[in-house]
Structures are given as structure tokens and as C-alpha cells.
Nucleic acid binder design. Structure first.
Lengths: 213, 213
DNA sequence: TAGATTGTTAATCGATTAACAATC
DNA sequence: TAGATTGTTAATCGATTAACAATC
């Protein structure tokens, strides 16, 4: 991997895998860059460019062997082992993610949730909801690498600081705030309100265009 | 607006507004492109470039008046009226969003949720959970412009087809599948598993680098 | 062999950044 | 006035796409 790899090519790599798995389930054995391009709505040359970036090779004229591709991509993205995660903030979103089953089969294990509210920590779920005091030791003792942050914005930075101290490696942040952290820690932000506002802009835009024409 | 506006500048515009609101709450009246740049972790020239794209003007030497800026941005993004939305799929995520209070104050109203499961539709929430049969008429009668899709992947395209027939304008899609729809309908995809996998790639990457050094 | 597809290099496109004249 | 900041143009950077030689 001598070339610079952009965030976008990683995102696409993850999507290639999803599509390839679907193809494999459909009983296919091979694909051409064409097929993948169509599935992701991009150009075939983009697919080949990405593949060459990651040293994913095929056969001239014969396309790519799906099984091989999947194995290599999984090696690159890193899903041949389990990743332990925790959720911080057992509000609506936190609890929803706690019950979400889509992560399990991908070897992402949610080991616990944390909340300041004792009312939450006293209830019994299949995954424990623990008080914040236990956060540091739990991360240490259970090999937690990733934290999912679903606290209110106001609490988020404070929690982030605790996570930094506990040597977390990555954070999926749902709190609508930019977190400050050392750059070794990878932070991925998801802002649902912003995504909705994005839609609003585009459906509003349309209206204006119609008005103008 | 003669220049082409990219999706990224819209995203930034939304973030400018969030930051400006915070500044305003702190009692500030003016900002410089510098301040905004720092808050968003971008360059000041990027801020000024974006502003010029949207005809947001300031005063040479005096910076920008926060109040004016907020008013203009809100006009552009379109949040001086209510946007009616529905949630389709009353699973964990759907129910979490139903109870999420962050949208209300931004004039995004969730009018109902829909589910095929009668068990769900019989329960009583503050927002009604209705059977899928009512979808079409509900959209028509309640001026629904945006749908939030939280069904399993398998059902998502079928639901999308119903939404297209009912003339929905925008969709926030949580189902891990690319939806097919006429291009007038704006679709915004959120894939939580993909966001987690993204983190995994980067924390794994790091490990390898350390091994190499 | 002829035709099709990869892998890579070069061209294009778009987005970010720097630079600076205008001006408050 | 001198200094600071905007608004815009030009330069740079990076990502996508086209083109095509290699080859199965």
C-alpha cells in the first residue's frame, strides 16, 4: 500500500464487500468491474482504480473471483476477529442500538452500556447497563476498543475525556458536537438532525426552481 | 445562485448555522471568517468561498453580523416552516427516533409511524403507530414530505415503491440497501454498520503501522 | 486468433486553499 | 491614515474518469 488511501475508497471498499456478499449468496462465482460499478452507481474505472490501490487483482478477460475478493477485502477492513464496543448514554437511541442485532453477526460485540441515571442501571437488559463510575475499569478489563456515544451534547466532551484516559481507539459519535481528542483516536460523527436538514435543503431547492421556471 | 453548489457546501452551511447559534447564545454579535473556520476545523478562505456562493455578505474589516447571517442561512436551508415526516418500521431504531425530541424544536414534526406488525400498531404511543395499509392516504392527507425508513433491508425497496407512488419528496434511509427511485426524490443514506466498520479499518490500520515501525 | 477485460497512466474535473486587491 | 478583513480570482491539490497497452 504505497498510495494514499482516501476515506472515500475505504467507504467504497466496505460497500464492495456488501455487494459481493450479495452476489455470492445469489450463487455467482465471478464478477467484472462493470457489475460492481453498476451496483454502486460509479464508473468501472473507479472500481479498478480502487482495487489497484488495495492490490486486489483479477484476471484479464476473466474478471474477479468473488471468494478471493471477499477474503482479501475482509483482511484489509479487518473483520476476522471480534471488536468489543460499549454504548455510553442509555437514552432512546442508546437502548435502540443496544437491542440492534445487525452488529452481532459482523463480529462487533456490544459488551455493555453506561449511564449516569441509576434508574437505567437498575433495570435488567440482556446487556448490562452500568453506572459511569465503572467506565474506566470496564474498558480496561474487557478489551474495549470502540465506544458509541449517544449522550446529550452537553455531556459528550466530558465523556470523551474519560474515554481518552481509558485509551479508547475509536468513537462513533451521535452527539451533535465536534469532539476534541488526540488525533490517534478515530472519531466518526453521525448527526441525524443534520441528515434530515440536508434533505430539507434539497426538497426546498426543488420548489424554488419550479417557482423560477 | 449562479454557481454550482456542492453537497459539501450545504453540509457546511448547516454546520455554520449550528455554530452561529452557539455563538449567539454566548452573547456574541459578530464573527470573522476566522472564528467560523476554527470552529469547523477548516480554512477561513473556505468559509468566505462558501458564503460568496450563497451570497452571504459581511463588512470588510467588521466581519459578519451573526443575526443577519442566521436569518439568511435559515432562509436558504429552509426552516421557517414545519416539515411533516413519518417513520416506517417501528422496530428498535424506529421507536427510538419516534421518541427522539431533538427534531421537534427544529420544526421537523414526526406525525406517525407505520409497521406491518399489528402488535405494534395496537400499542399506544404519543405518536400513533399505524398499519401499512394507511400509508398512502396518510401521506396525502397530512402533507407528509419526508419519510424515515427504518425497515429491514428486505422490505425497504417495496416500501420505497409505495412512497414514490404517494409522491414523497425526500427519504432518510437507514436500511442497508441502495434504494431505486426517480431522481426527483432526494434520498439520504445512513448506514450505522458501515460507520462502525469505517472505525474498525482505521484502528486496524494503526496497529499495522505500529507493527511496521 | 479475435475479443474482452484488467491494470495503470494520463486527462479531466471539482473542491480546497492561497493570494491579493478592494475597502471599511 | 494604517491595519484588518472581506470577496474573488488564480493556483493547488486530490479524486474521478477516460484511454489504452497488456494479456488471458
Amino acid at each position: 500500500m504505497n498510495n494514499k488511501i482516501s476515506k472515500n475508497s475505504i467507504r467504497r471498499l466496505i460497500r464492495y464487500r456488501t455487494v459481493l456478499q450479495r452476489f455470492q449468496n445469489m450463487g455467482l462465482g465471478k464478477v467484472f468491474s462493470d457489475n460492481l460499478a453498476e451496483a454502486l452507481d460509479i464508473k468501472a474505472s473507479q472500481v479498478r482504480k480502487d482495487f489497484s490501490l488495495f492490490n486486489l487483482t483479477g484476471n484479464k478477460r476473466g474478471g474477479y473471483v468473488i471468494g478471493d475478493l471477499l477474503e482479501k477485502i475482509t483482511n484489509i477492513i479487518g473483520k476476522n476477529r471480534t471488536y468489543n464496543t460499549i454504548i455510553i448514554g442509555a437514552g432512546n437511541l442508546g437502548k435502540a442500538l443496544l437491542q440492534y442485532t445487525g452488529f452481532e453477526k459482523e463480529d462487533i460485540k456490544i459488551k455493555a452500556a453506561f449511564d449516569i441515571d441509576p434508574a437505567e442501571t437498575h433495570k435488567q437488559y440482556s446487556t448490562p447497563v452500568l453506572p459511569m463510575e465503572n467506565l474506566h475499569s470496564f474498558i480496561q478489563e474487557n478489551d474495549i476498543e470502540i465506544a458509541i456515544l449517544t449522550t446529550p451534547a452537553l455531556a459528550a466532551q466530558r465523556v470523551m475525556d474519560l474515554l481518552v484516559k481509558a485509551n479508547i481507539k475509536g468513537v462513533l459519535n451521535f452527539a451533535p458536537i465536534r469532539l476534541k481528542a488526540p488525533k490517534e483516536i478515530f472519531i466518526n460523527n453521525v448527526n441525524l438532525l443534520q441528515e434530515l436538514e440536508n434533505i430539507i435543503f434539497f426538497i426546498k431547492e426543488k420548489k424554488e426552481k419550479i417557482a423560477v421556471i
